[in-house]
Structures are given as C-alpha cells and as structure tokens.
C-alpha cells in the first residue's frame, strides 16, 4: 500500500476522489519500476496494480469519460500482461511512460481545449493503436487458450456484419 499523502499532479479535470485515484495509480507505476530495478518482489503487487487501474477506470467512466476509460484500460492491459515478465517490463519502461504521458496530454486537452480535442483524439488513437500493434505483434505471447476460430466467433458477435 502507498501510505504517503497523494497530491494531484495533472491539471484538475476530475473530481477529487478520481484525481487522487489517478495519482495513486501513477505512484504505483513508479513504485513497481523501482522494485523491479532493485530486484525486489512484493506480494500481491500485480493484484494491487489491477485494483488500482480498475478503480480509476471505473471512476473515469462514472464521470463521463467512457471513451477515454477504454483507451486507458488498453494501455494498462499491456502493462498488466507484462508484469509476469519483469525483465521485459523494465526494458519497456520508456514504452509505457510514453503511453501514459500521451494519455495525460489527452485528458488535459479534453478540459483545456475542447475545440482541438477531436483532432487530438484521432492523433492519440493512431499513436496508441500503433503502440498496441507493436506490443501484440512483437512482445505479447498468446495464452494457452488461443484459438483463431473461437476468437473469430467472438469478434463476429461483437462487430456484426
């Protein structure tokens, strides 16, 4: 658990509880990288990360940032997946820092300049999409359940004709 007092560190755009949840999450990311670099293990850190990112995702959704919540979850899902491979996670510290920074800027744009938000969002979607393509093509390892027919069936249902 993080016991120090958490201060919001990005432009104030959300309710106080959501802002604090986001700051806690970001502090946790730093803590995980720090632990990994010192080769230290902490019990349940992966669960703590999951709970923290899901907490912020729920709060974002509840406050009307549904679309942004999906994008944030897509970034966190990659991080969560790579937590099982600590050496790879450290190697990709810059990769994740860039993604979280881009997400910060997107949130800031939403509150600061709504007129430019749509083009900023398209830019973010392309950037985040390219990063996901790199991750899922070169880094991620399929699960033991990977089956193209099943995945096609699920995709068919969720996208329709």
């Amino acid at each position: 658990m993080i016991n120090e007092v958490i201060k919001p560190d990005i432009p104030y755009i959300l309710s106080e509880t959501t802002q604090i949840a986001y700051s806690k999450f970001k502090a946790l990311i730093q803590k995980i990288f720090s632990l990994l670099k010192r080769n230290k293990k902490e019990k349940n850190i992966k669960e703590e990360f999951y709970d923290s990112y899901m907490d912020f995702a729920r709060k974002l959704d509840e406050e009307g940032f549904k679309n942004e919540s999906y994008d944030y979850m897509a970034i966190c899902a990659m991080y969560y997946d790579l937590m099982d491979r600590p050496a790879e996670l450290i190697n990709h510290e810059g990769f994740f820092n860039d993604l979280f920074k881009a997400f910060d800027e997107l949130l800031s744009a939403k509150i600061n300049n709504l007129k430019e938000y749509d083009s900023k969002y398209d830019e973010f979607l392309l950037y985040c999409g390219k990063m996901q393509q790199y991750y899922y093509t070169h880094i991620a390892i399929p699960s033991e359940y990977y089956d193209r027919d099943v995945l096609n069936e699920i995709t068919n249902h969720l996208l329709g004709d």
Binding site: A77, T137, P142, S143, Y146, L151, I154
Partner: peptide, 12 residues
Amino acid sequence: SLCLKDLSIDSN
C-alpha cells in the same frame, strides 16, 4: 484478461 490479449494478438 487472457481473452482480451488473444483478441488483440489475433487482430494485430
């Protein structure tokens, strides 16, 4: 989590 990962791997 595993299903989401496999869906993303497949489409990418």
